[in-house]
Amino acid sequence: MTTPHRITVVVGNTGERSRTKVLAQAIADALSAALPVTLQVLEIAKLAPHIGVANAPQDLSPEGAAALRAIETADLVVAVSPVYKGSYSGLFKHLFDLLSPDALVGRPVLLAANGGSDRHALVVDHQLRPLFAFFRALTVPSAVYAAASDFDGYVLDSEALRARIDEAVLQARLLLAARTPGQSLLREAA
């Protein structure tokens, strides 16, 4: 039997109702359909009281510390953020600021974001990708960006977006196939 891959989905939404959550769920569903997985979803809106006042990992509540462990031990991290003023949300960044600089070395990360219009699409490559490059993570080459026009209210309503999700999931699968669950490609190669 194949060991399921541990996937941690970090959703940068700051409210309960969110297109970011819908996008994250669509990616999680596509990953679940493509691979044997164990999913853990971390929502910034729910984590805020546990991470917002922490200046260092040792300042975290048990819930905040568990969130960091879920990211650090994932075989694949899916990072999904809404676009706020041309970048990811502040609490989303704060959560990753609490990680050790070596926590994601060689770890595959699938990047996704959503914003009001297509003019924010470059946030993935100009904001998210450099963040994970700092951690020396292996970002999936195809990222996913969704504009408001890709949704009907809070329902994903775009075949083009579904195709982008499928492409990114295929690339994530290829990165995961090159490693065994729990293994970091770069750490094992050294």
Rank of each mutant, 00 (worst) to 15 (best):
M1Y: 10
M1C: 03
T2I: 05
P4F: 03
H5Q: 01
H5N: 08
H5K: 15
R6Q: 03
V9E: 02
V10K: 07
V10G: 05
T14I: 15
R19P: 01
R19H: 04
T20H: 12
V22E: 02
Q25R: 14
D29S: 06
L31V: 04
S32M: 03
A34M: 03
A34G: 06
P36M: 05
V37L: 02
L39T: 12
Q40K: 15
V41G: 05
E43Y: 07
K46R: 15
A48K: 14
H50I: 00
I51N: 03
G52C: 09
G52K: 10
V53L: 13
A54G: 12
N55C: 13
P57V: 03
Q58F: 00
D59S: 11
L60I: 04
S61H: 01
E63M: 11
G64C: 09
A65N: 07
A66F: 05
A66K: 09
L68C: 08
A70D: 10
A74E: 07
V77C: 04
V77G: 03
V78D: 08
A79N: 09
A79R: 10
V80D: 12
V83S: 11
Y84V: 11
G86C: 10
G86Q: 11
S87D: 07
Y88Q: 15
Y88N: 06
S89W: 02
S89T: 15
G90N: 07
L91D: 09
F92P: 09
F96I: 02
D97L: 03
S100V: 06
S100C: 12
P101W: 10
P101T: 07
D102T: 12
A103N: 10
A103M: 06
L104Q: 01
V105E: 15
V105C: 13
V105Q: 13
G106T: 05
G106Q: 04
R107L: 06
R107D: 12
P108M: 13
V109M: 05
L110Y: 01
A112R: 08
A113G: 02
A113M: 04
S117W: 02
D118H: 07
H120R: 00
H120K: 03
H120F: 03
L122C: 06
L122P: 04
V123Q: 10
V123I: 10
V123S: 14
V124Q: 02
V124H: 08
D125S: 11
H126Q: 14
Q127L: 09
Q127M: 09
L128G: 04
L128P: 11
R129S: 05
P130V: 07
L131D: 06
A133T: 13
F134D: 09
F135T: 12
R136G: 10
R136I: 11
A137L: 05
T139D: 09
P141H: 01
P141T: 07
S142R: 03
S142T: 12
S142M: 01
S142Y: 00
V144G: 08
Y145G: 11
A146M: 02
A147Q: 13
S149Y: 01
D150P: 02
F151D: 11
G153T: 13
G153C: 12
G153P: 14
V155G: 00
L156M: 01
D157H: 14
S158T: 01
A160H: 10
R162P: 00
A163N: 09
I165V: 11
I165A: 00
D166T: 02
E167M: 08
V169W: 00
R173N: 04
R173W: 00
L175E: 08
A178M: 13
R179V: 02
T180K: 15
T180N: 14
P181V: 08
G182Q: 04
Q183N: 04
L185V: 15
R187S: 15
R187H: 15
